[in-house]
């Protein structure tokens, strides 16, 4: 049976969240398809990878350990991943829509001449009847994604070509341990089987990685600011509110572009997708690219001077007013009532 394969991204010996989220999703898909879940990990010093991924239901883990592969590089990773796919013939292959996955995915798909759909927001299993050729396809991967700047939602399929490849952004799928005692099979592969010297023509001269200190994705409360917050200074109200509510600060792209907040805080199509218990949108107009990343929030409060701002249409509660006047009142009210 052709399995589902997930490429695991690794930084400093740790499997990225996005890969664990995809393993979770892939496990559920594999149950539907009655097949097994495989994972691929490439890097240096991979001894702790098995115990990181097996709880997510991985049945078989391909490990390719090589000290030259500590950091991601296009050509060697492409040749290894494509090589493993050729041997294990997965029906579905998933990777994160990170800078790594979006570099690797298209390269591998071009090599194998298989279709790839970027930045999927949902993955489902379903059937397809091709009217033109009178052909029925069962159990295809439905790759669902926004397109056209978020104005349409497209369902993409790859009827004929395998693997059916898709990338998904961090935070879109939920990470969930399937069975903490699960132990799968480890298959160690020799990198030299897949590589030749010309794969290392690109040399990394310098690499500068910041610790990921900001992670708004797992926060239950997000106080998010837009261009309407007005300045970096005004963002301090939002930090204060987030801190009293035990939440994190998010931002719209316009706020990030204006330098009010870091890119790591950006919510939306080109930022993170969040689904907190409470999302407070301060001075955010609510363009589709923003709402795509937060409309699953359990409760949305909008604070906006414009009572007709589009965000108000998806908000549960609308406070009409200036951010710098409303937010301090919320802080004061919260402090008063929780004493």
């Amino acid at each position: 049976m052709n399995n589902i394969s997930v490429f695991c991204e690794i930084e400093n010996g740790i499997v990225a969240d996005v890969s664990l989220e995809l393993l979770t999703k892939a496990y559920h898909l594999s149950e539907k398809l009655n097949c097994k879940l495989e994972a691929i990990a490439i890097g240096n010093k991979l001894n702790s990878i098995p115990k990181q991924v097996f709880p997510y239901g991985v049945h078989k883990l391909f490990l390719v350990e090589d000290r030259r592969l500590e950091f991601y590089q296009t050509l060697p990773f492409t040749h290894i991943v494509a090589g493993i796919f050729k041997e294990s013939k997965p029906q579905i292959a998933l990777m994160g829509a990170s800078n790594v996955g979006r570099d690797l995915g298209p390269r591998v798909s071009s090599k194998l001449n298989s279709g790839l759909t970027a930045d999927c927001t949902e993955l489902e299993i379903g059937d397809f009847y091709d009217k033109k050729n009178d052909k029925q396809y069962n159990n295809l991967l439905y790759q669902i994604r926004p397109a056209f700047g978020g104005n349409i939602i497209a369902t993409i399929i790859n009827p004929e070509h395998r693997p059916q490849m898709a990338t998904v952004r961090e935070g879109v799928m939920k990470k969930e341990i399937i069975n903490k005692n699960n132990i799968g099979e480890v298959v160690n592969l020799d990198s030299n089987k897949y590589l030749n010297n010309t794969d290392f023509v690109i040399e990394i001269l310098e690499r500068h990685v910041e610790e990921r200190s900001i992670n708004i994705k797992n926060s239950q409360v997000i106080v998010s600011g837009g261009y309407g917050v007005g300045s970096k200074e005004n963002f301090k109200y939002l930090y204060e509110l987030a801190s009293v509510l035990g939440g994190e600060v998010g931002a719209s792209r316009a706020a990030v572009d204006a330098g009010f907040a870091d890119h790591a805080r950006q919510v939306g199509q080109t930022g993170v997708t969040v689904r907190p218990k409470l999302y407070i949108a301060c001075g955010i107009s609510g363009q589709i690219q923003h709402t795509a990343g937060m409309d699953q929030s359990a409760m949305i409060i909008s604070i906006n001077i414009d009572k007709d701002a589009p965000i108000n249409e998806i908000a549960d509660i609308v406070i009409t007013g200036d951010v710098s006047s409303v937010v301090p009142k919320i802080i004061a009210a919260y402090k008063k009532n929780t004493k």
Partner: peptide
């Protein structure tokens, strides 16, 4: 290799929201 099976237009629907001053 990829085919578009379905296209749905995103419809902006209003939901009842509570207004606070």
């Amino acid at each position: 290799p990829t085919k578009v099976k379905k296209i749905e237009n995103v419809v902006f629907t209003a939901k009842e929201s509570k207004i606070i001053n």
